[in-house]
Amino acid sequence: MAPKKPPKGKSAFFGVRQKPSGNFGVEFSDAGRRWWIGTYPSAHEAAPAYDVAVWHAERPREHLNFPEIESRAEAEMLVPQGIKMKEIPTKKKTTKKPSVVVSAGETDEEAMVRFAREHPEYVQAKLEYYWKREADQKKKGAKKEDEAGPSTVIPIESSSEEDWVDFSKEEEEGCDDPDKEEFWAQFRSSDDE
């Protein structure tokens, strides 16, 4: 029976995969970091390079492609050009801003003060953002919608003269002057009701 063929892009060796160019690339990961070892013309040349990386990282022998290799020196002799391990940068995880949890009996304002005390870096970043935005807006100048234009008077036509009674002749109840006693008396009388 013929040996099982590995899926496309894979090889039968640890850490070795076929590239679209037809060459075989070798990757190694250790302690949450990924390392690029190199590209080789065949999977059989790439596999010993992975083994050298395993020996460098002092990993268990069961991770070797060729477990019959007895030492690191023997593994390095199988890769005459040696290996140049280059770390592959991983995507940085974006940290989420911690949420503000309002406890029972605590007002929103108290919760925001507590958050600002516990996470001053977010408060500072927010202030810097708004300062920068304000400075950018000053550099650009006022926006058209912010500029004051001439006021427009829209005439209203009335169907009858009764709508336009002179209200200035009528005396309204109460007083609008807070210095007068009448002004305060009207509020006291509304509280009694």
Rank of each mutant, 00 (worst) to 15 (best):
G9M: 06
K10I: 06
A12Q: 15
A12I: 12
F13N: 01
F14R: 15
K19I: 10
K19L: 15
K19G: 09
K19C: 14
S21R: 05
G22T: 03
F24E: 00
F28I: 05
S29E: 08
S29I: 02
D30F: 13
R34Y: 13
I37F: 02
T39P: 03
H44C: 09
H44D: 14
A47H: 00
Y50D: 01
D51T: 08
D51S: 07
W55K: 08
A57H: 00
A57P: 03
A57G: 05
A57S: 08
E58A: 15
R61H: 11
L64I: 10
N65R: 05
P67R: 06
E68P: 00
E70D: 15
R72A: 15
E76Y: 04
L78W: 04
L78G: 02
L78S: 07
P80W: 07
P80N: 08
Q81L: 10
K86R: 13
K86Y: 07
I88F: 07
T90Q: 14
K91H: 09
K91N: 10
K93P: 04
T94P: 07
T94G: 14
K96P: 05
K97D: 05
S99N: 07
S99V: 09
V101E: 11
V101M: 08
V102F: 02
V102D: 04
A104H: 12
G105L: 09
E106F: 06
R114V: 04
R114Y: 08
F115N: 02
A116H: 01
R117D: 11
E118A: 07
E118F: 03
E121R: 06
Y122K: 10
Y122I: 11
E128S: 14
Y129S: 06
Y130P: 01
E134V: 11
K138E: 10
K138L: 13
K138P: 03
K138S: 08
K140D: 12
G141K: 05
K143V: 10
E145T: 13
E145C: 12
